[in-house]
Amino acid sequence: MALKLKPLADRVIVKQTEAEEKTASGIYLPDAAKEKPTKGKVIAAGPGKFDDNGKRMELAVSVGDTVYYGKYAGTDVEVDGQKLVILRESDILGVLE
């Protein structure tokens, strides 16, 4: 199924990983206590933004990369029942290798 949302400029669309259901010691967390995920997989990437000379700069991340981003970064959206986050490339803290 193709994604109906296309990111522009230096933005990427990330599918969040699921929030942890229980703590390391085995205590199950209610929905209200779950942390917002800060890790996800890039499912779409924009073409990059233009530099001062009008040349397009490629993004450092690509589709399929697993990335970490700030807790309050990006905009949460829902498309076709999928919970997604739209982030600027600068909001991404790192790529998991």
Rank of each mutant, 00 (worst) to 15 (best):
M1G: 13
M1H: 09
K4S: 13
K4P: 07
L5D: 07
L5H: 07
L5V: 15
A9K: 13
D10Y: 07
D10W: 05
V12S: 07
I13N: 00
V14N: 09
V14A: 10
V14Q: 08
K15D: 01
Q16N: 01
A19P: 07
E20K: 08
E20Y: 08
E21P: 12
A24D: 01
S25W: 00
S25H: 05
I27H: 12
Y28P: 10
L29E: 05
L29F: 00
P30M: 10
D31K: 11
D31Q: 09
A32K: 12
A32H: 08
A33G: 12
K34P: 06
K34V: 05
K34G: 10
K34Y: 09
E35N: 15
P37I: 06
T38L: 04
T38D: 06
T38H: 04
T38N: 09
K41P: 10
V42K: 01
I43T: 03
I43H: 05
I43E: 03
I43W: 07
A44F: 06
G46E: 07
G46P: 00
P47K: 07
G48I: 03
F50Y: 14
D51I: 06
D51T: 09
D52Y: 07
D52K: 07
N53R: 09
G54T: 05
R56T: 09
R56P: 01
M57N: 11
M57P: 09
M57K: 14
E58H: 03
E58G: 10
A60H: 09
A60N: 11
A60S: 13
V61G: 02
V61M: 08
V61D: 00
V61F: 06
S62I: 00
S62A: 03
G64R: 02
D65A: 03
T66K: 06
V67A: 02
V67N: 00
V67C: 00
Y69F: 15
G70N: 12
G70H: 14
K71T: 08
G74R: 02
G74D: 06
V77D: 02
E78Y: 01
V79H: 02
G81K: 15
G81W: 14
Q82S: 12
L84S: 12
V85P: 04
I86T: 05
I86W: 04
I86L: 11
L87Y: 13
L87N: 11
R88G: 13
R88Y: 14
R88V: 10
S90Y: 15
D91L: 05
I92F: 06
L93C: 10
G94S: 14
G94H: 09
V95A: 05
V95G: 02
L96K: 12
L96A: 15
E97P: 11
E97T: 03
E97C: 04
E97W: 04
E97K: 11
